[in-house]
Computed example of a mutant assay.
Amino acid sequence: MNALDLPNPPHQTRVVVAMSGGVDSSVVAGLLKRQGFDVVGVTLQLYDHGAATHRRGACCAGQDINDARAAADHLGIPHYVLDYEDRFRDAVIDKFAESYLAGETPIPCVECNRTVKFRDLLGLARELGADALATGHYVASRPLPGGGRALHRAKDPARDQSYFLYATTPEQLAFLRFPLGEMGKDETRALARDLGLAISEKPDSQDICFVPQGRYSDVIARLRPDAARPGEIVDLAGRSLGRHEGILHYTVGQRRGLGLSGREPLYVVRLEPATARVVVGPRSALATSRIRLDGLNWLGDGARGAVRDLPVAVRVRSTRPPRPALLTLDADGAEVVLAEAEDGVSPGQACVIYEDDDPRSRVLGGGTIRRIDALSARPPEAA
């Protein structure tokens, strides 16, 4: 077996590397080339609009495509740029807008990995005769005793991207490789310098690449100009406290920008797209102990129907560590019961399931949060 756990020697093993124009993917291409693999670089042009193509930390557009091409030329590998703008708009950007207008807080990076990168690009890699598709994600995969591969958290917890890759299927995992999963960012940049890459000090890409300056509402307003429906800001009892210019400007857990005065800080605890209401309350109203998931991707062992009250650890935000919970799977998805209630759990976000809270824990899968069981999550009349 070679360094990628593939059967043939490197010179007989073709690997397509997804090159975004950043340091990480360029290092993956250079590292595999140095190890003797037959490396082909592929860059996807995913969008080409507005300030996002010029700001620091963008990816897959504008200057980043030029950076990827320059890195491939320096490494002496073939490189292709593919126009996937239509696919990206349909699979990622449009769904992002729809989810926001439904009162959810979506994660487009998950959808991008699930569709454009690990479905469409993976299919292209196979057409190019590749034995594997390698990316610059900080996540690890390891062979399973009975065949296939398991997904694990990265060596560097500060760089771990497993939260955004939970939707990777077993079939995709068998073909994917993540050479940076056992490295830290400092090691990657050192390798970039050693490889002579001009982008060794380039800033990291942002989580949402197509949102300039992180202003989600601007993107939604451009995509759905008629969607900003004004409405009321109300408390948990339904009493009006003020007005707003559209729920697309708010997310669950938000405190700033409400324009409300009072002695007690208020937070967004629920969005009601049908009535265009923003429901606010005290921080205590954000506590959630039970979560319902759909769109479940199961990477664990055994049949889904056999999983009931399984002790696991779950992550309900990318910035939070995994926390203890009990997991039950059924035909429609999953139910997660948290050992301790968490604040700000929002529909549309991902809930990623880990075997335990170990820093190198295995990823068992995850799903999209659709329902949260908290007093604040129910309409006043149901409380």
Score class of each variant (00 low, 15 high):
residue 104 E to R: 15
residue 105 T to Q: 11
residue 106 P to Q: 06
residue 106 P to M: 11
residue 107 I to Q: 09
residue 107 I to T: 11
residue 108 P to W: 05
residue 108 P to R: 00
residue 109 C to K: 00
residue 110 V to L: 10
residue 111 E to W: 14
residue 114 R to I: 03
residue 114 R to E: 14
residue 115 T to F: 00
residue 115 T to A: 02
residue 116 V to R: 13
residue 117 K to G: 01
residue 117 K to F: 00
residue 118 F to D: 00
residue 118 F to Q: 07
residue 118 F to Y: 14
residue 118 F to C: 05
residue 119 R to W: 06
residue 120 D to G: 02
residue 122 L to E: 00
residue 122 L to K: 07
residue 123 G to W: 05
residue 123 G to K: 02
residue 123 G to P: 02
residue 124 L to S: 04
residue 125 A to E: 10
residue 126 R to N: 03
residue 126 R to S: 07
residue 126 R to C: 06
residue 126 R to M: 08
residue 127 E to C: 13
residue 128 L to E: 06
residue 129 G to Q: 05
residue 131 D to E: 12
residue 131 D to Y: 03
residue 131 D to A: 14
residue 132 A to V: 10
residue 132 A to N: 04
residue 134 A to S: 04
residue 134 A to Q: 02
residue 134 A to Y: 04
residue 135 T to G: 03
residue 135 T to Y: 01
residue 135 T to E: 00
residue 136 G to D: 13
residue 137 H to P: 09
residue 137 H to N: 08
residue 138 Y to V: 14
residue 138 Y to L: 13
residue 138 Y to D: 01
residue 139 V to L: 15
residue 141 S to E: 14
residue 142 R to D: 07
residue 143 P to C: 12
residue 145 P to F: 12
residue 145 P to S: 13
residue 145 P to L: 14
residue 145 P to V: 10
residue 146 G to A: 15
residue 146 G to P: 11
residue 146 G to Y: 14
residue 146 G to N: 15
residue 147 G to L: 08
residue 148 G to K: 08
residue 149 R to D: 13
residue 149 R to H: 14
residue 149 R to S: 12
residue 149 R to M: 13
residue 149 R to T: 13
residue 150 A to G: 15
residue 150 A to C: 12
residue 150 A to W: 08
residue 151 L to Q: 05
residue 151 L to T: 02
residue 151 L to A: 03
residue 152 H to G: 06
residue 152 H to S: 08
residue 152 H to L: 12
residue 153 R to C: 10
residue 154 A to L: 08
residue 154 A to S: 10
residue 154 A to N: 02
residue 155 K to R: 15
residue 155 K to M: 10
residue 156 D to V: 11
residue 156 D to L: 10
residue 156 D to R: 06
residue 157 P to S: 05
residue 157 P to W: 03
residue 157 P to L: 10
residue 158 A to E: 01
residue 159 R to H: 01
residue 160 D to S: 13
residue 161 Q to W: 05
residue 161 Q to R: 10
residue 162 S to N: 02
residue 162 S to V: 01
residue 162 S to D: 00
residue 162 S to M: 03
residue 163 Y to T: 05
residue 163 Y to N: 06
residue 163 Y to R: 07
residue 164 F to A: 12
residue 165 L to Q: 11
residue 165 L to C: 12
residue 165 L to S: 07
residue 165 L to W: 03
residue 165 L to M: 10
residue 166 Y to Q: 04
residue 166 Y to G: 08
residue 166 Y to E: 07
residue 167 A to P: 02
residue 167 A to Q: 09
residue 168 T to K: 08
residue 169 T to S: 13
residue 169 T to W: 04
residue 170 P to R: 10
residue 170 P to I: 01
residue 170 P to V: 04
residue 170 P to S: 07
residue 171 E to Q: 14
residue 171 E to V: 00
residue 173 L to S: 07
residue 173 L to I: 01
residue 174 A to W: 04
residue 174 A to F: 04
residue 175 F to Q: 05
residue 175 F to H: 09
residue 176 L to R: 03
residue 176 L to I: 01
residue 176 L to Y: 02
residue 176 L to S: 01
residue 176 L to Q: 03
residue 177 R to D: 08
residue 177 R to K: 00
residue 177 R to V: 10
residue 178 F to P: 05
residue 178 F to Q: 10
residue 178 F to S: 07
residue 178 F to K: 08
residue 178 F to A: 11
residue 179 P to M: 09
residue 180 L to D: 09
